[in-house]
Structure formats: C-alpha cells, structure tokens
Amino acid sequence: MEGFMLLLHDRTTQQGDLSPEEIQGIIAEYVAWRDKIAEQGRLLGGEKLADDDGRHLVLDDGAIRVTDGPYTEAKEVLGGYFAIKAADYDEAVEISKDCPHLKYGGRIELRKIDNHR
C-alpha cells in the first residue's frame, strides 16, 4: 500500500446562493464518501486549510523573505486535503473519481507520498 494526497483545490467564487438544504446535501455526500473510504481502512486523514493566502517563504539574497501567499489573483485556492491508502495510482484515481469535490466544481491534485529510499 502506498500513501496518496488528494489536494483539494476550490474555486474562489463562493457559492453564496446555496440554500441551507443544498448545503446539507453536499456535506452529506462528502461525509458518505469519507465514511466509505474509512470503512475500507484507506482513510489516513483530511483537513480544511484556512481561507487565507498563507505565507510564502523564500531565501532572497541571503535573507528569508516572508510574503503573504502570492495566489490572490488565482481562480482557485488549496482548500484542504484528504490522505488515503491505495495500491497504486490507478486505484487512487478510481477512489478519487467518486469524490464529490469534482461534481461541485473543485479540482483534485493527486500526489503519491514517496516512501522509497
């Protein structure tokens, strides 16, 4: 088994029009997906990242320069992640295909955790 990160990119345009009922419905879909992965013993974790641009650090002429995230103009932000276990990329892709994130306009960046020495 390998570890995979599903990096969840959100669109920055907010869905302010969603009704309470619709919001509950979408959450229920995510929770159902999450529960299914957890039941299979494949879920390692998942977190939401703060809705800001974060901090950006670089070594610039010998001094560390810290700036607010450079992504303010971007159409999407990294909103959160899931970490899962899967045999290989093919299986991880199959699992990710069901994730409601895609249906609701988000983008998933799938990355394998490199455990090889």
């Binding site: 969603l18 979408i26 998942g46 939401k48 899931f82």
Partner: peptide, 17 residues
Amino acid sequence: IQESMLRALSHWSYKGL
C-alpha cells in the same frame, strides 16, 4: 447565518462531522 453554513460546508466536507 448563511456564512456560518458555508463554513460548515468546507469544514465538515474535508474534516468530517
């Protein structure tokens, strides 16, 4: 109230309930 529900949407969706 609407904003608090949208916060729940992003939190609970990724973290669980």
